[in-house]
Nucleic acid binder design. Structure first.
Lengths: 121, 121
DNA sequence: GATACCGGTTACTTCAACGGAACCAATGGC
DNA sequence: GCCATTGGTTCCGTTGAAGTAACCGGTATC
């Protein structure tokens, strides 16, 4: 009995998981979702824990998540401005795969780094 | 009781999950791991199901996974050449987070695309 | 002699993500 | 009058991932 080798139809031509709105290991999208897990936050409340992010990149990240229906943006007509970002139900579904990846990193990152150090050096 | 807002130490400065060797939604790395799940495959056996990938990009993807200790490369001194790629134990640990992301896409991709169509349109 | 096969390599180009710095409006406080 | 605050925007540049096309050695087959 020979093991079947995947043929050219093994993957969906428009590979669905390629369309995931955030990438694991992506720099910022996953952080935003995790930060919003316990309720809405303001722009600066998101920005503070994500130390290295610039306003520009955080704005881009949030717009992208908003476009994909993962977060909502609510602006209040106050001065100074107040804007709140909140996870949608759809956005909340991202928590499971994100957690799976965080768990992976917690368990296996040392082994990865060791392999990489050996390869590089 | 006010909800605690994450401060600047919420994330590890060198955010560990940012170092995941493949990215979900990444174009090729995840496919390679999934294809190798049931045993070693040759270069062309990997390339065939990944229709759109070029030799160059597949080589780069495999080198990167090899560097991170996720796959091994075994070349046999034959003509024509034979090279087999195989998942390591470490590489096998990637199957869980990848599956979590494939499950996510299967369940939620339609909702994402709908949100995106509404936003764009 | 020409062609096909396998597992690539090399040079060049394109594109998106990311980053730095400057700037903004409206208001409140000193 | 001057500065600080909030939530951004704009311009510019860098980087890396990805794609295109051409080419390779060594053998076997036609």
């Amino acid at each position: 009995m020979t093991r079947p080798i995947p043929d050219e139809d093994f993957f969906d031509p428009a590979c669905p998981s390629s369309a995931m709105p955030i990438r694991v290991g992506e720099k910022w999208g996953g952080m935003v979702v995790v930060l919003l897990e316990n309720g809405p936050l303001r722009f600066t409340e998101l920005k503070r824990p994500m130390r290295a992010v610039t306003s520009k990149v955080l704005t881009e990240t949030l717009r992208s998540l908003e476009r994909d229906g993962m977060v909502t943006r609510t602006a209040y007509a106050e001065v100074p401005p107040r804007v709140e970002y909140e996870l949608t139900d759809l956005g909340r579904t991202l928590l499971a795969p994100i957690q799976a990846c965080r768990d992976w990193a917690a368990a296996n990152l040392p082994a990865l780094l060791e392999a990489r150090a050996g390869w590089d050096g």
